[in-house]
Nucleic acid binder design. Structure first.
Length: 479
RNA sequence: CGGGGUGUAGCGCAGAUGGUAGCGCGCUUGGUUCGGGACCAAGAGGUCGUGGGUUCAAAUCCCGUCACUCCGACCA
């Protein structure tokens, strides 16, 4: 391998320079590298493998809730974008346009999709005639392009991978139910698979998706106290259905516009789990999406029987359904320990002559630093599996504790400023006026994140204007 | 898009006042090692981001440009 090795000591200190730490971790653990065009990113095998596990986990859940996958073209006629006023206004500044084929100018410029509502609506208009065609529950896995001013690997790139679900429903109630159902799917997935607690709730009008009536989000709390919107679901009502003339004949025999939703989550989830779980030694990957769940390090590999036993161990664990790597390279054991800790592998097994004699291995878990325990090779498949579950639970627990400590109740601007200055989320009351949101953003660089479903008040007046307020909402800086 | 910073070997960096590129790590080969980043020996590797300009001479000075990065603005 021609590429250089990297060392934990090459990664910036997570406490004093979180931004640099993040970039270092992404590049040096080989999750991704920069592409040649501004804002683009190459997902390297280690990073892409995480994405594949995320895809599988989400896709299973989409199928289980009745959705089917399809694929729509990446190029969209510009006129489609213009049909929904808010939508074009929201996306026009950041869309990439195709204007020429070779030297020849196209009669109508094409949009490289920033999202697919428009083209999907256009097709849905052809496909839907009757209430019997509903609900229509389609998801696609795709790339989208949005020319953002500031980019960072996984968090915001010019092109990124995501899934977008687009559904049509007979009734408003059904569509609203779908919007919340998929939000809960995201929440459950983040908690159980990524070991990542999230705040779920509804977005303010200012923060909602261009063209949506309501937007909901899951917000993950990063270790630097910023919020990362990690998945959204939208209730569109009939906005797009009217704009694209999607109609169906109802049970009563009249033509109606269906109610629509969409939901999306992207490779940003990888950024979220890096910044949720990582530590001063590098990555800490949640076990269910870790490309390598168990790494086996042979000790004194040239001694009689060590490698043979290591292979046998690997085969046993692999046969039990675990993702296992046996590192037979010439590097010293100490080097390997550091390497796989940096790469976030959840479980390490050391196997040397002393262990083999005892029919055991030395086990170390990434989520608890410095701990080593002996584990018997008898039934090691089930003990490692149980351990992975425990690691996932522990990682979630730790993250949840940290999150709790990062949320403070705020009553007024002084409180909110104190929260912002100490990199915390403020949970407080808001009058609902855009003016207050704008003022808070301008003075503190803090935005509203979302309104939790539990609206038990934490005060009675708006943190900004002091007028009577009924909406409870999270305020935070965000990525 | 505004303001600051950076760009020299795979990585991290050094190369005052211009004189034709170096260090550490890594990499290759051979050998000894192996329970927390091993050691010895011999090697390979760079048109100094890029395009122009000034000069006898440019990594170094000037102009443009591209990328990365930080802080804002923008942004599911």
């Amino acid at each position: 391998m021609a590429e250089s090795r990297t060392f934990v000591k090459d990664i910036a200190d997570i406490e004093s320079d979180f931004s640099r730490w993040y970039t270092d971790v992404v590049l040096k653990t080989r999750l991704a590298d920069y592409g040649p065009v501004k804002g683009t990113m190459v997902m390297r095998p280690y990073g892409y493998a995480i994405w594949e596990h995320i895809q599988r986990g989400l896709d299973d859940r989409f199928k289980a809730t009745g959705h089917e996958n399809a694929y729509f073209p990446m190029l969209i006629p510009y006129s489609y974008l213009e049909r929904e006023a808010e939508h074009v206004e929201g996306f026009a500044p950041e869309v990439a346009l195709v204007t020429h084929i070779g030297a020849e100018e196209l009669p109508e410029k094409l949009v490289v999709r920033p999202t697919s509502e428009t083209i999907i609506c256009e097709m849905y208009a052809k496909w839907v005639q009757s209430y019997r065609d509903l609900p229509l529950l389609i998801n696609q896995w795709a790339n989208v392009v949005r020319w953002e001013k500031t980019t960072r690997p996984f968090l915001r790139t010019s092109e990124f991978l995501w899934q977008e679900g687009h559904t049509l429903h007979e009734t408003e109630a059904e569509a609203r139910e779908e919007t919340l159902r998929m939000l809960r799917v995201y929440e459950e997935f983040c908690q159980n698979v990524l070991a990542m607690p999230v705040l779920i709730g509804r977005k303010s009008d200012k923060e909602k998706f261009a063209g949506a009536q309501e937007t909901y989000s899951i917000e993950a709390i990063m270790q630097d106290g910023k919020s990362l919107q990690s998945g959204t679901t939208h209730y569109f009502g009939q906005n797009f259905a009217k704009a694209f003339d999607i109609r169906f004949q109802s049970r009563a025999g009249v033509l109606e516009h269906p109610y629509q939703t969409s939901f999306g989550a992207s490779t940003r989830l990888i950024g979220a789990l890096i910044m949720t779980h990582g530590d001063e030694r590098g990555l800490r990957l949640p076990p269910y999406v870790a490309p390598v769940q168990v790494v086996i390090i042979p000790i004194a590999a040239k001694k009689e029987g060590v490698l043979e036993n290591a292979h046998r161990l690997k085969d046993r664990l692999t046969a039990a359904g675990l993702r296992v790597k046996l590192d037979e390279s010439e590097n010293s054991p100490g080097w390997k320990f550091n390497e796989y800790e940096m790469k976030g592998v959840p479980v390490r097994l050391e196997l040397g002559p002393r262990d083999i004699e005892k029919n055991a291995a030395v086990l170390s878990r990434r989520d608890i630093a410095g701990e080593k325990n002996e584990v018997s090779l008898d039934g090691i498949e089930s003990s490692v599996k149980a351990l992975l579950d425990d690691i996932n639970a522990n990682m979630y627990q730790k993250a949840a504790e940290r999150n709790r400590a990062k949320i403070v109740t705020v009553q007024n601007m002084d409180d909110l400023k104190a929260a912002a200055d100490s990199s915390k989320f403020g949970l407080g009351m808001w009058c609902g006026e855009r003016a207050c949101e704008d003022k808070i953003k301008e003075s503190l660089q803090v935005t509203t994140r979302n309104m939790p479903f539990d609206q038990t008040p934490v005060g009675s007046t708006c943190v900004c204007c002091g007028k009577k307020a009924k909406i409870k909402i999270y305020f935070a800086k965000s990525y």
